[in-house]
Design a protein around this nucleic acid. Structure first.
Lengths: 203, 203
DNA sequence: TGTTATGTACACCGCTCTGTGTGCTTACGG
DNA sequence: CCGTAAGCACACAGAGCGGTGTACATAACA
């Protein structure tokens, strides 16, 4: 960062080296996996010399960790911050985003790195917990009897759909959405104006 | 195989080389992952020379495929063939076996190999379909309205619990079992005498 | 006894991977 | 103008991997 993008025209070469590396990581790590993506290929894709890459990141581990840290805002917010949907609809909308994210990179990373102590694995755990927490919040908003439990359950459905989609090569999210519908209907007492009309459900 | 175990005492050295290799694979591939387990280490653990290993298997790929093919009978039958349980109880008993299998090796293999055309990936798909099919059969036995759907749903729960257990380092199968209970109760019309007579509490 | 199958011990090849060392180029700033 | 900082191109080290080649040992069978 420091004083990189300050010039009137910016340094042509330098401006965004980190971004290009991380952008290439996003693509390649997903398409090919982490272990199968060598630094040579990655640097070539990022149009960055290998030497430069290792001046921005101490090693591949750090790069992988950073790569995993970049998902939170985009995917999470895109669903949970939609004010045009009722809380209940938001809970179900989660199962419609897989087209954007064909498979969960956190599961892949946890399997590929295979080290629970790896910083990237830590980020993966944090992310999963954050997702479950936001689901729980939304569930509470929707008037669920036990929001934490529902959040955890829906999170499990997401992971199950992701894993199954991966192994079977077939979209499993519709099945997960069907389960989610049942769970939500069962968890919300029906007294709560969950769907349309959730105004006075504040308490 | 051919004429290995035919002698009155058998060849001391040869008898069970394949088994030792596969046994070591089961342990090491699970503990360390497939890619991280080199053939040198694996052969040392199996107390088999590397040369011998490559006379039994054309390559690591074939070994991995065989390794995955060895799970079907043990795990599957141990649950589905239990006649002491009602169909409904069998469907739920599935979520109690993870202590035996800490994580699903098929998901791990699919991620690690990263090639849907790999023979091992094919076995993984076959296995997953077989599990879903047996779940569907049991669901039909239990009187489910749509057994195929329930089977697919329960299979998704298993995979979700496995993946989540892996990423979070915490047992997620209880959550999956809770969901399964809801799904089963919702899918079985209650007219079917599946469990210990779940009275006619319908409507 | 000798042959043949099976397995061992160990060195070795070729490849890929992460990570560095070195020298050259580019562009900005004084 | 020259200095400095960032980057590039390229080669290379070091390690691990899958897989092989070679020479030797053992046991059954003729």
């Amino acid at each position: 960062m420091t004083e990189l993008e300050k010039g009137p025209q910016g340094r042509r070469r330098g401006r965004g080296a980190r971004e290009r590396i991380l952008s290439a990581s996003q693509q390649l790590f997903r398409e090919q996996g982490i272990n199968r993506t060598g630094m040579d290929l990655l640097c070539a894709a990022a149009q960055v010399s290998k030497r430069t890459a290792y001046q921005h990141f101490t090693g591949k581990d750090e790069l992988v960790a950073e790569y995993l840290r970049r998902f939170d805002p985009s995917v999470l917010s895109s669903v949970f911050d939609r004010t045009d949907l009722t809380p209940r609809e938001r809970l179900l909308a989660v199962f419609d985003i897989p087209p954007t994210t064909p498979l969960c990179p956190y599961i892949a990373a946890a399997v590929e790195l295979h080290d629970p102590e790896h910083p990237a694995s830590q980020y993966a755990r944090d992310y999963k917990k954050a997702v479950a927490a936001r689901l729980a919040d939304t569930a509470r908003e929707a008037g669920a009897a036990d929001p934490e439990q529902l959040g955890e359950q829906l999170a499990l459905l997401i992971d199950g759909a992701a894993a199954r989609t991966r192994v079977l090569n077939a979209d499993a999210f519709p099945t997960a959405a069907a389960i989610a519908t049942v769970l939500i209907d069962n968890a919300i007492p029906a007294t709560a104006g969950d769907d349309r009309r959730r105004e006075e459900a504040s308490s």
